[in-house]
């Protein structure tokens, strides 16, 4: 039985954005939109079948998300605020997703990289799910990669 995770990712993200940021989230109406991600957080779910979660947000989502989570004006948001908020959001996505995958599994700490038009690469891994979403600040994407299992 093939399990797909896109609906769950959507639900998890909706719940996290609603609770922590007070923002509504919808699926991006067009599936294949150009990459606008400028801040990307990666988190590993280690176990029998390792999975990497890549959470990439546009510059506007990084700023708007940080402002909403920290309850400050968007002009007061620093680069560190953006990185920390994106890291924590990815941590919540990874943690909640982990409960749906066959265990036992261990969550790594998030790693955040910044840069325009980053080609997200998870060496040797296969992209198994990609969900592009929209919130009031703009677009962001969640990707799941399956790591090859060592024999």
């Amino acid at each position: 039985m093939e399990t797909t995770y896109d609906t769950q990712i959507e639900q998890i993200v909706q719940s996290i954005f609603a609770t922590m940021l007070g923002m509504e989230v919808v699926r991006h109406p067009e599936g294949d939109v150009p990459c606008e991600e400028s801040l990307i957080s990666t988190i590993q779910i280690a176990g029998a079948q390792p999975v990497t979660v890549v959470f990439g947000v546009s510059a506007n989502v990084a700023r708007g998300g940080a402002a909403a989570m920290l309850q400050i004006g968007s002009d007061d948001v620093t680069k560190d605020d953006e990185r920390d908020v994106v890291a924590e959001l990815s941590n919540m996505i990874g943690g909640n997703l982990k409960s749906l995958l066959p265990g036992p599994l261990y969550l790594s700490l998030p790693t955040v990289v910044a840069g325009k038009e980053l080609g997200v690469q998870v060496p040797g891994a296969e992209l198994i799910e990609e969900v592009t979403m929209l919130c009031e600040s703009g677009m962001f994407r969640v990707r799941l990669y399956e790591q090859p299992v060592r024999a």
């Binding site: 719940s15 609770t19 919540m92 943690g95 909640n96 969550l107």
Partner: peptide, 26 residues
């Protein structure tokens, strides 16, 4: 914590946590 599995909660409680709150939380 973001750990939401029952077995993890039981581990935390048996280690001595008094309560457990899952992230995201309001």
């Amino acid at each position: 914590t973001t750990e939401t599995e029952p077995e993890q909660m039981l581990r935390a409680l048996s280690a001595g946590a008094d309560e457990y709150l899952m992230k995201p939380f309001a």
